Amino acid sequence: MTGGPGLHHVVFAVAPQRWETTARMFTELGFGFNNAELAELGVRVALDWDRGVELISPIPDSTAAVAVSVRDFLERHGDGVYTVVVRVPEAAPAEAVADRHGATIRFRQSFSGDGTYLNEVDLSVLGLPLTLLATNVP
Rank of each mutant, 00 (worst) to 15 (best):
P5C: 13
G52C: 11
G30K: 14
L38G: 03
V14S: 01
D114H: 05
I59M: 15
G6I: 12
Y117L: 01
T22H: 09
V121K: 04
V53T: 11
I56M: 10
A36Y: 02
T83L: 13
A94V: 00
P89M: 10
Y117W: 07
S62D: 05
T83G: 02
V70Q: 08
V97N: 09
R76K: 15
L55Y: 15
R106C: 01
A36V: 06
L7F: 15
D72E: 13
E54I: 07
G80P: 00
D50F: 14
Y117T: 01
L7T: 05
V86N: 04
P60V: 12
V121T: 12
P129A: 15
H9M: 08
V45A: 14
Y82N: 13
L29E: 10
T135E: 01
S62A: 14
G30N: 09
P16G: 07
A13Y: 02
V84Y: 07
L128Q: 14
E20L: 10
G30H: 15
E40C: 11
L123A: 00
D99Y: 04
V14D: 03
V43W: 00
L128S: 12
V86R: 05
H77R: 15
G127R: 09
G113I: 03
E40H: 14
G4M: 12
L128P: 00
V125I: 08
S62F: 14
F107D: 01
G78S: 06
V81L: 07
V86E: 03
R100N: 06
N34H: 12
T131Y: 04
T83W: 04
L128T: 11
H8N: 02
V70F: 07
H77I: 03
L123N: 00
N35C: 12
H101K: 01
G3I: 10
A92H: 04
L74Y: 13
D72L: 05
L29P: 00
T83D: 05
I105N: 10
L47N: 07
L55Q: 07
A23D: 03
V45G: 11
A64G: 08
R71M: 04
E40T: 15
T21I: 02
S57C: 04
L132W: 11
V43C: 09
V66C: 04
L38H: 06
A15D: 09
A96T: 04
Q109H: 06
A46T: 10
R51T: 11
T27C: 08
A92W: 01
F111S: 04
A96D: 03
E28V: 06
E95F: 00
G52R: 15
G113H: 02
V121C: 10
Y82D: 06
